[in-house]
Design a protein around this nucleic acid. Sequence first.
DNA 1: AACTACTTCAACCGCACGTAC
DNA 2: CGTACGTGCGGTTGAAGTAGT
Length: 547
Amino acid sequence: MSYTTTTVESDDGMQSSIHNESPAADSIGNDNRSRGKGKVLKKGPWTSSEDGILINYVKKHGEGNWNAVQKHTSLSRCGKSCRLRWANHLRPNLKKGAFSQEEEQLIVEMHAKMGNKWAHMAEHLPGRTDNEIKNYWNTRIKRRQRAGLPLYPPEIHVEDLQWSEEYTTSNIFGVDRRRNQDFLQLGNSKANALFDDLNIATSLLPGASDLSDMFACNMLGTGATTSRYESYMPPILPSPKRLLESGSRFPMCSSNIKHEFQSPEHFQNTAQQKNHKSCSISPCEVDHPRNGNRHSSDMMIPNSHTFTDGMLPTSKPIFGAVKLELPSFQYSETSAFDLWKTTPPSPQSDLVDSVDAYIQSPPPLEIEESDCFSSCDTGLLDMLLHEAKIKTSAKHRLLSSSSEKSFGSATCTTDATLNVPPGGETQIKSGEFEDSQKNLVTSEVSIPSQLSTAFAGNVVKTEELDQVWEPKRVDITRPDVLLASSWLDQGCFGIVRDSSSMSDALALLLGGDDTGNSYVTVGSSSGQAPRGVGSCAWTNMPPVWSL
DNA sequence: AACTACTTCAACCGCACGTAC
DNA sequence: CGTACGTGCGGTTGAAGTAGT
């Protein structure tokens, strides 16, 4: 190994001797240097001398302004490199060495919650760097994949996770294509097929580039089961980010889910519902041979990183609203919430056992369906119709009220409407489930706020339009309408088995405009996106958005 | 001892975001 | 408003280390 020593006097008077001790440093002047502002920047491993220079610099100038390092010192490193070196190796209180068991567990749990948010995780692991955590996780993935183990141990349950509002609101439900990659990496063939389909659709459908994103979004929202998303194609919703880029606006995937997902209880409850018949909602990963890639739904728990990402820090998807919306309809009017509250968590042993049992013998679709809509003996359509009637009658009432407040926050006219105070309508929902009528009423009342939050960040443009059309717009974006009616109940999106009844139901639900046009053209793939008033949210949506 | 395969981890790269100009 | 710059993040790469043969 050769050594090169450079003695330099920097601006701050520090005289430095740079010993390039590493093999990489041998190549100084060749591949390991790049030019930066006329200065040849060194790359590759850091030497102790360089470390010393950097440490001195930080002592003197503090962190930050990393690009100034090379100006004020003899270091020939780019600012990025300095920052990285400092953050990962030089800064005080760094914990070195292997992760403790507690740390490992924490990482696993956090990853289940946050996905690949290494920096966020690092905040919760004092002395650890994002890079360390990332490396750990990546090796862990490989190890477990090789061993045929699930990515998350069975004991990591959603309900065990401390729900962090921070992640709830900003990270978990962002959707990003990379998450899909992440998912695909893990070898779920079903998901592969799924995303293959999505990719195909993406290639075929204009404006559908984010199909997979939205699909993930919607699956999260519905808690869709494998069997479901095997058979239907959800609507194409561009990610909020790309919506913004494209100038289009759409409420989906943009809600302040803080209010929709109020607490871990929500998922807990949902999980426990499923626990009844199947198994724990364990974010088990996908490549366990025994998984057989079944029941991805249980893998795709709402907060599973598998389908989520926080790459959209400003986006607040709507599936929270979707999720929270459902209890108004899908659970027994007598005891849905009580059930949630009283159902004891499965014993750990059960959970562990149930994973295998669940994997091996998935519950039939009927069970899943009834699981979701068990309370609706008359069926979803009836439920929708019933609700539509209520809403139709309520529409006039609502329209007659000029006060936005009296209409809840349904107008979605300003960002202020997003600030639904905790303890508002959503709390009504979670607190009062006494009878079916009350449920319906409650849900009706609560919808606007949910929708308003759903519109967060993608606020509908025009107030004047809101005044006229808000009820319709509110309805059309109702996740339960979109999801339950078209996707869950009717199967393939756009292929409606009973288009007339469905059309009626949806038309009723959506009200249609005064000229008799419905905003929903059931069964038509060529239907136009709603125009005019309703279009404030829809105008820029691709045609495929028509139901 | 030599070779290969595999693992670990430091560092780089590209991208996105925020801010100053 | 557009651009440049600084910073941070997550993904990827490749050198070094380790285990197995």
